[in-house]
């Protein structure tokens, strides 16, 4: 009989503590599958952020380092520069990557660090209770934008792929979502490519994953998926933003 499903080796058997309907579990799985399929598990060092994925080292079955809030690209740089033979990736949320860690993100990208960045954009700060993120949509209500994000007061949603696309050091940028099986397959392809690029020494590769956060959005999981597909992707269009040949 043909085996069609097996345990993903790069994931531990530990049950996730993510909220019901959260996208992180899916994204962890896509990262783990990509690493397994490329045969990289034994030389991978991941960097966990400060945010919902802070416990990533409890879920991934390979070496993981913590980083202060926003600093994963710097920590990844330190690792990759002294251990260029290792596969180094960061897993970061929108607050970590696009607010407090903006400088680290932009400069790692601009240096063309040969690392992979998995950027989970869920339009708010999940772990601390749904506060406004740099990627919060205009009009979106959060714990710290109770009247809705007003661009006059809080500025506009930060579009990381668009922002980084002008930097010469960047090899690959793609925005994907995990709202339905078709999008998940597409997200998997992008994530795997971002790791393959590192194996090939192509430089900085980032995949922005639009993810659902039903609890902090105050929605049912079903409605959160609908919101991603009807609203979120309108502000953050999916697609490839850079693919350096």
């Amino acid at each position: 009989m043909k085996k069609i499903l097996s345990k993903t080796e790069s994931l531990k058997a530990t049950p996730h503590l993510y909220c019901p309907g959260c996208g992180h579990g899916i994204i962890h799985r896509l990262v783990a599958e990509s690493i397994d399929e490329l045969g990289l598990r034994e030389k991978t060092i991941g960097i966990a952020p400060v945010g919902c994925a802070v416990f990533a080292y409890d879920y991934f079955n390979f070496d993981v380092s913590e980083a202060p809030h926003g600093r994963p690209p710097a920590v990844a740089t330190g690792i990759k520069r002294v251990r260029p033979d290792k596969i180094v990736f960061t897993y970061q949320g929108d607050g970590d990557l696009a607010a407090i860690g903006t400088a680290e993100t932009i400069h790692a990208a601009n240096r063309g660090e040969n690392i992979t960045v998995i950027f989970v954009n869920n339009a708010n700060y999940g772990m601390t209770g749904g506060q406004m993120a740099p990627t919060t949509l205009i009009g979106q209500k959060t714990a710290t934008s109770p009247y809705g994000r007003d661009p006059k007061r809080e500025g506009y949603p930060m579009k990381v792929c668009e922002l980084l696309s002008s930097l010469e050091g960047v090899a690959y940028l793609e925005r994907v979502s995990v709202s339905n099986p078709k999008n998940i397959i597409s997200a998997k392809r992008a994530i795997k490519k971002a790791f393959q690029n590192q194996v090939d020494g192509k430089g900085f590769s980032l995949v922005e994953v639009l993810s659902q956060c039903p609890v902090d959005w105050g929605m049912t999981p079903q409605n959160s998926i609908k919101w991603v597909e009807d609203v979120f992707v309108k502000a953050f269009p999916l697609g490839v933003y850079k693919d350096k040949k």
Partner: peptide, 14 residues
């Protein structure tokens, strides 16, 4: 300097 000390952290971890 913030980035530098965190690069140190990464390199040290290896």
């Amino acid at each position: 300097e913030v980035a530098a000390i965190n690069m140190v952290l990464g390199a040290s971890a290896t």
